[in-house]
């Protein structure tokens, strides 16, 4: 049994998602940048914070804006004993809470910096603490803080301007959301067997007990029947180019070679499904359907598909179309 392979994977759109916010969300965020909270009054008289772009009851557009706060009341809370400094607004323990600003009929989800869960209570009075650096985001409000009766709300600090920059003046049009998720992905048994084969410079396809149609690379099943592929067959290292294209787009990934490069479907001898592979050691203009190729191994091989560096022409006469046309 092959050792099961696991690889770390990061899912992140570089730079973050650029989310345009439209006029209603934009106005709310602009007010936050100014150190104020605004909500919208809907047809039934309720004031919603944060505002929706439409009346959730009638569907109509919302029009009437109302300043709310600055204080608020906690409607529910939970303590975060071990915050994630990369993600959360505060690096020390805090509470997530639903805070209903004065004058609003709904609560907004936010953060309370209370020092300890013993200081938290449903119904408690809180006041806003704004950051100096504000960009038009819910995080411009750094946190709510407990407020004693009669205690004054903290003064909103003047907007801090980044060095060499200018104070933003126009309405907020969008936010940037950084989203980074990490995974440990495991390959699965059939793919692991295939990849360990590559490590030994062997290309291993698989088929099920009821069929001799060899899948390369195997993904665990004979897709026609849903039966597991349990029988290993070594295929290649030679094969036939069934079809291909010439890629002229640079920089599709770190691993994309210099352009132009040729991507081909290669039907390895003994296999019944083609591999999608890079061709090398040939001019793009010389590649043709039916060309015979062979795997070229990387200098360093391991249990991953980079062990095959590319496929190069063998110099054999082109394959007869009847041997591969059914596999297009």
């Amino acid at each position: 049994m092959s050792e099961a392979l696991v690889e770390h994977h990061v899912l992140e759109y570089p730079g973050g998602y650029t989310r345009s916010v439209g006029p209603v969300i934009g106005r709310f965020l602009t007010a936050l940048r100014d150190g104020r909270l605004e909500g919208v009054r809907i047809a039934d008289g309720r004031v919603l914070v944060p505002p929706t772009e439409y009346d959730p009851v009638t569907g109509a557009e919302v029009g009437e804006w109302v300043e709310v706060g600055p204080t608020g009341r906690v409607r529910s809370w939970t303590w975060v004993a071990r915050p994630d400094p990369d993600l959360h607004p505060l690096g020390h323990p805090f509470a997530f809470a639903l805070v209903q600003p004065e004058g609003a009929d709904t609560a907004m989800l936010h953060v309370v910096d209370a020092g300890s869960p013993d200081a938290m209570a449903i119904g408690m009075l809180v006041g806003p603490r704004y950051r100096a650096e504000r960009v038009g985001s819910v995080r411009d409000l750094e946190a709510w803080v407990p407020l004693a009766d009669g205690e004054h709300v903290a003064v909103v600090p003047p907007l801090a301007v980044p060095e060499g920059g200018e104070a933003p003046t126009g309405p907020v049009g969008g936010i940037v959301s950084r989203v980074r998720l990490e995974y440990d992905i495991n390959a699965g048994e059939a793919p692991s067997r295939f990849l360990h084969g590559l490590e030994q410079r062997r290309i291993l396809g698989e088929h099920s007990r009821t069929s001799d149609e060899v899948y390369v690379p195997p993904r665990g099943s004979d897709a026609k029947t849903g039966l597991p592929t349990e029988i290993e067959v070594e295929v290649g290292p030679r094969g036939t180019v069934t079809t291909f294209c010439v890629v002229n787009i640079p920089g599709l990934s770190e691993l994309a070679p210099e352009v132009p490069y040729v991507c081909a479907q290669v039907l390895l001898d003994g296999a019944h499904t083609p591999l999608f592979a890079l061709l090398g050691e040939c001019d793009a203009g010389d590649v043709r359907m039916g060309m015979r190729v062979e795997a070229v191994w990387a200098d360093e091989v391991g249990p991953d598909q980079r062990s095959i560096r590319w496929f190069r022409p063998t110099g054999e006469p082109d394959a007869d179309p009847s041997t591969f046309e059914a596999y297009l």
């Binding site: 392979l5 690889e7 770390h8 994977h9 992905i185 390959a187 793919p191 990849l195 069934t242 079809t243 291909f244 294209c245 890629v247 787009i249 599709l252 990934s253 691993l255 994309a256 991507c263 081909a264 479907q265 591999l275 999608f276 592979a277 890079l278 359907m289 991953d304 598909q305 980079r306 297009l328």
Partner: peptide, 20 residues
């Protein structure tokens, strides 16, 4: 992870079929 490291973009998948 574990896929072919070759990246050709969306069209790179379909262009060979068009050639065929």
């Amino acid at each position: 992870p574990f896929q072919a490291p070759l990246v050709a973009g969306a069209g790179g998948y379909f262009a060979p079929l068009i050639r065929a």
